[in-house]
Design a protein around this nucleic acid. Structure first.
Lengths: 222, 222
DNA sequence: GCCGCGCAAAGTGTCAACACTTTGCGCGGG
DNA sequence: CCCGCGCAAAGTGTTGACACTTTGCGCGGC
């Protein structure tokens, strides 16, 4: 009806690759900046600057920043500028406590909901990762991700992604890089996969919780 | 510097009571509409209409709706209008599974973090609620709330509030209204309070999880 | 030489207007 | 009488401009 003022959808210069809205694009752009490390924790998020950079108006950028606030990747300073969140020790512990109970629950549910084929494949991949030097970030991601995806509760996955994984990525806690961790984790993964294959929900949950708790200690004591 | 276009902060008519931003006010207003039942699940959320109603421009309303999307109280239909979320049986189960593990964890943490005085008071209030006809919505809210608040992990409380309680309120699941539930729940509460007072984290968590699981069954089988 | 005041600059909050997309209804053909 | 086409209406996406608030720096007084 009446709105776009600018109405510059295809006029502004760069054409959008996909059909998503500019707000979505801004969101992806900012997240990319966070992951690339260009926007570090504590850095100020400037609407106008980002708008200029992305070749759009402040509106969509503002919307994206607000959404990131909802995901707690950005905090607002009183009445003023937005900053990339900074986490103290207590906040880190809190995040891992959240992760512990969520991934534990996902594991419990996965013991019931995942198919035999999926569990078989999980066990195989886990085995391979332990014997080789394949304990990469990608692999670990896929192990936890496979369980969360297979647990049958998408909401748990969403919460984990937004409240935990994004923040973990922001701080680059690759606990696997810590000495001794890369050696212990594969064994724990194998034990979890084994419990899942036996459909032992209680044991799978307990093992996963312990696994997460251990990786927290690696991060916190570092 | 340059912004308000409208610049109608105090000109538009109604003066804002507090110092919060209009976007915050719009958010509160929409949540109030949800709680009052005027905006039912499945209802269309119209930016312009709400803007007119709240006496503000579409901008802040839009922002509020986007934030509610982040809280999953509102879903966006493809490219189009926003709707109040509707939940099927699977979604309801998912929400209670989330609640189970989060409140369970909160309970575990509370067993360590809450002060003796706070636990004493919790036990006293719980006792009173069981013996009288005081098993009201307010009371139950305060029981669970006291534990979550006292667990020392604010993030768990935030997630619960946004991912669970808001949705529960939206659907008015007062499981206490179901026959037999008002009788069983107080006893379960007392057992949880007792375990907390003994600082028995494992038992407190297990009892709380069972408690939540039972109230889910009341809702789902109804 | 140091502290406080005041002004300029930067940044966010808000608005009205315009562009684009989808929906819904009426009209004509079959 | 039913179906499909096209146009009007409604709604969201986006923009540039203006209001208000905070920050930071320079200047003058002490």
């Amino acid at each position: 009806m009446a709105q776009g003022g600018g109405g510059t959808r295809h006029q502004g210069g760069i054409a959008r690759a996909d059909d998503a809205t500019l707000g979505d694009e801004a969101l992806r752009g900012i997240v990319a900046l966070l992951r690339s490390g260009e926007l570090k924790p504590g850095a100020i998020v400037n609407e106008a600057e980002l708008a200029k950079r992305f070749g759009m108006s402040r509106g969509p950028v503002r919307e994206a920043v607000r959404r990131l606030e909802g995901r707690k990747l950005v905090v607002r300073e009183a009445y003023q500028r937005a900053r990339v969140v900074t986490l103290d020790r207590a906040a880190i512990v809190g995040i891992f406590e959240l992760r512990e109970c969520l991934e534990g629950m996902a594991c419990r549910l996965a013991a019931t909901h995942m198919t035999d084929a999926a569990l078989e494949r999980l066990a195989r991949d886990t085995e391979r990762a332990g014997t080789r030097n394949a304990f990469t970030v990608d692999y670990r991601f896929s192990f936890h991700q496979a369980i969360v995806d297979g647990c049958g509760n998408a909401r748990i996955g969403t919460v984990l992604a937004q409240e935990v994984y994004d923040l973990v990525r922001l701080y680059r806690w690759s606990s696997g890089a810590l000495p001794g961790r890369a050696g212990a984790a594969p064994a724990e993964h194998r034990a979890i996969a084994a419990a899942l294959r036996k459909r032992d929900a209680d044991r799978a949950e307990a093992l996963m919780r312990e696994h997460v708790r251990r990786s927290m200690q690696m991060v916190v004591t570092a």
